[in-house]
């Protein structure tokens, strides 16, 4: 059975599975390289020792308790949670509105707007970081939640807009015209007809905005210091002084959050895609 599988052709050019074993092995190693390093952190974070080891010789929750007991880590987490929530709440409606605008206007204008909205995605975060920092100095916006959220909304807008736009493109705009011809205003037609149909893409975009802001460490490195420091910024500072096992606990929690959000986005996306014709 195995032999028959190995000698069966695997490609259009009649290469057998046996002939591609090297490719399978290479791809498996590459996937291990991509996934294993971060996943290994999770068991290690439960060590009872004062340093990280694999596998841990004793198990405890001491590093999770250390994280929750530290006012600095708690404050940083709260700053990040607030910033991520506000970023999500602001970037999602702005992104949906922009996507709708891009879709309705004529092609050339749409391309120009699309290019302008992608700018934050193309520019190095370090450059945006020092720019915001230097601009915020005279404005007094450094280390404030407002300044941080403004930066994060701008950074997440391309992702939110492009995700929603991709979904809207497969939506039939004539449905809205029908609603309008029956007496709906354009806004009501959008809210009652289009929005329910693209809601999964909108939720996915909102989750993406949340996670992006929660994990963003470069711009916040420059503009969020002192009491305004975000969780990624504190982690970054701590990493420069060596391996603190508390970070293993925080990383594990962050990974669980990421896995949940990615799973949610995947499920939402697969349910929200355009209906395929049978």
């Amino acid at each position: 059975m195995t032999a028959r599988f190995l000698l069966a052709p695997a490609t259009d050019t009649q290469i057998t599975h046996l002939g591609r074993l090297w490719l399978y092995a290479f791809a498996a190693l590459a996937l291990v390289f991509l996934v294993a390093p971060t996943l290994l952190i999770i068991p290690m974070s439960f060590t009872g020792a004062g340093f990280l080891e694999f596998p841990p010789r004793s198990w405890s929750l001491r590093w999770y308790i250390a994280y929750l007991d530290s006012p600095e880590w708690r404050d940083a987490t709260l700053v990040s949670l607030r910033a991520a929530t506000l970023t999500m709440l602001l970037a999602t409606p702005l992104g949906v509105a922009a996507a709708y605008g891009v879709l309705v206007v004529e092609r050339r204008t749409a391309r120009a707007i699309g290019a302008a909205i992608s700018v934050p995605m193309m520019m190095p975060a370090v450059l945006i970081g020092i720019g915001l920092y230097l601009l915020y100095v005279p404005l007094g916006l450094n280390n404030t939640l407002a300044g941080l959220v403004l930066g994060h909304v701008a950074l997440t807008l391309p992702y939110v807009t492009l995700l929603v736009l991709a979904r809207m493109k497969s939506h039939d705009p004539r449905q809205e015209l029908a609603a309008q011809s029956l007496g709906c205003t354009r806004l009501r037609a959008f809210l009652l007809v289009t929005l329910p149909q693209i809601r999964y893409a909108v939720i996915a975009a909102a989750l993406l905005a949340f996670i992006f802001s929660f994990d963003e460490g470069v711009v916040s490195y420059f503009i969020a210091t002192g009491t305004g420091a975000t969780l990624p910024r504190r982690m970054f500072l701590s990493l420069q002084f060596g391996v603190d096992p508390t970070i293993a606990a925080i990383s594990s929690l962050l990974m669980v959050l990421t896995i949940l959000l990615v799973a949610a986005i995947q499920i939402i996306q697969s349910r929200g895609g355009p209906r395929r014709k049978a």
Binding site: V104, I128, I130, L132, L150, A154, L157
Partner: peptide, 18 residues
């Protein structure tokens, strides 16, 4: 077109101007 303006304004203020 006005629908895209708020997004463009935020990007202008927090990315282009800096």
């Amino acid at each position: 077109l006005g629908l895209a303006l708020p997004a463009l304004a935020v990007i202008g203020a927090a990315v282009v101007v800096p």
